[in-house]
Computed example of a mutant assay.
Amino acid sequence: MYSNTPSYFTPKSFILGGAIVAFLLSSSANAVLVHEYSASLDFPGNGSWTDEVGSVNLTFTGGTTSPVDVSGNSSYFSAAYAFGGSITGGSAGTNWNAVAGSSSSYEMWIRPNAIPIGTRQTLLEIGNPFFGMSFSLDTDGSILALLKQGGTNSLPTIVLNTSDVSSLLTSGEFVQVVLTVDKNDPGSGIQTTGTLYVNGGQQASLTFDGDIDLVSSNPGGIARFSYDQMGGAQRDAGNPYSQNTFSNYEGEISLLRLYDNAMSAGEVQAVYDSIAIPEPQTYWIVGCIGALLIVRGMVRRKRS
């Protein structure tokens, strides 16, 4: 049986890693964590994945389920949920729409069984072909994001693709995948920027005119594909991103986080480092942060 404490959450690294994330996120006041799903902290066998920060639990498709022990083959986590067998996805209902309706970020730590062949595999989706967005594993070893522009079929789906990251996806370790959606008003109407990151590094970014619309009936989910619910995927069979080119995700997910704003590149890197950097380096980073705080305090006292 796995421990309820993830392998990266040793008493010291938990405090230090958390301090890094809290400091960097709060100092810029850019993105705030609003939903977190950690397999290493989840209660086994109750058929849902508990939200450790908010109150939106994920309901699994496939009945009562439990995380699997990954402590023997992962340096980062002690448990994960395995999708593709008895678990064929998880649903948040319409409860993520409050986050997705504005600027937001989506972070997942995944370990696929293999690079998908023939059909793409859905990691996360919110909405439907006319209203929504999604990101998936593509058949060429890249990460694919679909952002439906404007909420009507007459406007195109915006496509974001990373480079081939199959070497990371098949390395045997969990990989961080992040999608950020930044909505702003430059004075001439809303512009939206979608950005994809892998293991803390920016891989693709695109800005377009218009919004990504969501309606109250749009459900959200992970590791699942469903016709008429796939955010950004098109219904017409002739489209290269039509719904029949997608399927359920097959592999493990250990951590999922949703943020209420578009994370900056520095924030994405800091969150990745808080998990992936070995503990001695974490000490060094936190030491630097502590020194910075001391210097700031001395400067403030002098000015006062």
Rank of each mutant, 00 (worst) to 15 (best):
S66L: 11
S274L: 11
W49Q: 09
E173G: 11
H35N: 11
A22E: 11
F23Y: 15
Y249H: 15
T64Y: 12
S55Q: 13
N4I: 01
Q243G: 13
D182G: 01
F23C: 03
S142Y: 04
G210N: 05
R296P: 00
I158D: 09
G141P: 04
W109P: 04
F225Q: 08
P186F: 07
T195M: 04
S264Q: 14
V178L: 11
T61L: 14
S7K: 08
N113I: 00
S136Y: 03
S274I: 10
D51Q: 11
N95Y: 07
L155T: 14
V295H: 00
S274V: 08
V21D: 04
P156Y: 07
E252H: 15
L292K: 02
V32Y: 04
G141M: 09
A39Y: 03
L206K: 12
K183W: 02
G18E: 08
V177N: 05
T64S: 15
L137E: 08
M298D: 01
Y81D: 08
L58Y: 05
A39I: 04
I277Q: 07
Q202K: 14
D185L: 09
S28P: 00
E36V: 02
G101Y: 00
W49V: 06
N30C: 08
T139P: 06
V34C: 05
W284H: 07
L292P: 01
D69N: 15
S78E: 05
D213T: 08
G45Y: 05
Q203S: 14
G93R: 04
S102K: 02
S226I: 13
S264R: 12
N248L: 15
L155M: 14
I143M: 04
G132A: 10
G17V: 02
Q281R: 08
T282F: 02
Q121S: 09
S304A: 14
S26A: 14
E267K: 02
S103Q: 02
P280M: 12
P280F: 07
I110C: 01
P11K: 05
P67I: 12
L33W: 01
G194S: 12
N95D: 12
V215L: 08
R296T: 09
V21S: 09
I143G: 09
